[in-house]
Design a protein around this nucleic acid. Structure first.
Lengths: 215, 215, 215, 215
DNA sequence: CATGAATGAGCCTTCATTCAT
DNA sequence: CATGAATGAAGGCTCATTCAT
């Protein structure tokens, strides 16, 4: 019942989300620097001025777009993490999710990497990039924690190191995939399995896992 | 006799190298998209037009600049690899080199990451970026091979995976360092030591086992 | 009985006055060209649309604002003129009033000069600017007439010339004052005294003749 | 022989002067705020980009234009001052020059007043406006000094007051003239004669001047 | 060979104004 | 009556590139 407290702000936020979503398409296609607000507007059903009406500036828009995408992304991985009930299932689910992201959302993902690279130069980007980065690190940590939970053993590295590893692997695979390497997905998945198995060794094949109680 | 076969081309290549070097400074400061050829010319002793004379376009110039820098970079790491005579020495040398790069060449390095991010969008960048990337991967592999050589044990992961891991760690540290995190260097070094010890466990003499033993 | 003949128009005029007053603040701060209706609305408690509802356009609004301010201004000077009972008192009151205006209403006053300058280009401004200008000229004339009345001697120059002189002096002082010149007010006041004494020489009682005698 | 020391800078300055002159036309027509650089370019034989090539920004251009015009202006009045050999001749020459300026250069002159009004708001304008203002004040002072020289009597007011007076009169006349008042010029001239005669009384009609030695 | 003047497309942003609600 | 969402023209400015010298 508390669903309509500030209809004004809600409408505004809704519209921002809508525009952010529409921008994602063009942004993912061209990248941050090469995308103009005019281009975004033209590729959507909105006018050029409306973008400036809802967003402080280009940065505000881009950040909104990417944050939105990344939130969706995290959600999807969390679903895998939450629903998997065995080491095997989680491993395959995780690898599959990564593969799917690579195959279906490569353009979207390169936008994120572009943004992060720009944050190396523009301080204005940093706070938001760091926030998104942190949310990804936490997501990865939830995955590994789940592995550990299913195994009974701890994760061998700190959260940051784990994230850096998978991020490095994904980034490498993304570049290869976009370059036309057909085996990029499979290679990445096999690499991911290897790394997971080193960070959280699989339980002994013989002993079937003893279902840890779901949260 | 092979000393002056094509004096024309040599002069030309020399001039390119010189210009590429001069451009590096400005590019590292501003990043690819925000650097104009004018700006580069102004920050150097060269005229605006000469850049267009020696380089096809902006892309040609930036690629030349970064390739040059990266070649120097690889050389420096190889020196450490070659001269180290013990696991300990190599580990410390490697960590120190990474720390130095982060501290002293952060701007130069972010340019590389910028370029690689752009290659995700612009196919024109890819071949050269891939080439540089490969040279770095090989460099990392030489480091690990040396570890293995000094240990007698093999490296636990393929070359690509190893590179992705260190690259991920370095990238993460770079962002933190540029954001003002004073502990970025130390954290990265400790992370690197951890990863190395997992990829190529230290020889017994050093009292340091139990790395892989579960808690 | 004539208190509520056209309640519609009265309300309307009242509202206009209210809005005009609210706009004054922002206009005085930024000047005509740099002030947007949005800015005015944001700095007031009114909505953006209401301005367009009560005013034909930006011009209509600004004219209303300035006219209102200037009317208040004239009233204040007239009070000095009316209540002063001696040459000395009037001279000091006039100088004090000018000083006060400069010190306390410099932003408001520069708006008036801005508007008048714009009227040199935009015919649409001219009628209203001329009207305000005339009201100021008359005000100055009332001051001088009062001097003459208290002296018994006539004013030495036509109304327009007198106005131009004081206006020139005030404008000059305004620029200096806004530029940070601490002595702008005092200098203007001394200049004003000098000019008044030349236009309407002080009565004999005050030992102060020889104003026009050559050195 | 010292006429071509830096052919580079000279060319540049020359071009600036040329462009500044070309801009004057449009600027005088529309005023500062309503004139776009594009418009200036269109009304000249130059491209839009060249303006940005030679001038830092819009302000730089406008200032250059107005400064140039005003320097010419001052020169013209100085000529009158220098060549006049009697009170009468100087008075008529001065009045004629003012009349000419009003009749032939009203648009140019309103630009100056516009600029000065903008300087009340924008600090960036002030230094240059003050400089031009000072040059005008000095010019007026040279005129009055010449009157004094021809008369043998001193000027009755400080330089600043004198300038403010004539400036006020001219401004008033300019507005009337632009509003279509046919008598604006004549009225101003008669006012100027009146003021001059009060600031530096004419020599006795009977006694013919005793030619003061030319400088 | 080298220079730097000149071009013009394109970018981000601002803003008065219109209009559906 | 009043609101504020939406529009689109226009402005200052940047920049890779071309070209005459």
């Amino acid at each position: 019942m508390a669903t309509q407290p500030r209809p004004r702000d809600d409408k505004f936020a809704e519209r921002r989300a809508e525009l952010g979503e529409a921008a994602l398409q063009t942004l993912a296609e061209l990248g941050y620097a090469r995308t103009s607000l005019r281009e975004i507007a033209q590729n959507s059903e909105f006018s050029h001025g409306v973008l400036h009406y809802y967003f402080e500036d280009k940065l505000d828009l881009i950040l909104c777009s990417v944050r939105q995408y990344k939130a969706r992304c995290v959600k999807r991985y969390d679903e895998v993490t939450t629903t998997s009930t065995s080491y095997e299932e989680l491993l395959e689910g995780f690898a599959a999710a990564l593969g799917d992201t690579l195959r279906k959302e490569a353009p979207l993902h390169r936008l994120w990497y572009d943004l992060r690279a720009q944050s190396l130069f523009e301080a204005a980007f940093r706070a938001d990039v760091a926030e998104i980065d942190k949310s990804l690190e936490k997501m990865i940590w939830r995955v590994l924690s789940r592995f550990a939970e299913l195994t009974g053993a701890p994760v061998h590295v700190p959260s940051g190191v784990a994230y850096a590893m998978f991020d490095g692997l994904f980034q490498q695979a993304l570049l290869k995939h976009l370059s036309g390497d057909k085996k990029a997905v499979a290679t990445m998945q096999s690499n991911v399995r290897l790394v997971v198995s080193q960070l959280v060794p699989a339980p002994l094949p013989t002993k079937r896992r003893r279902q840890t109680a779901p949260a």
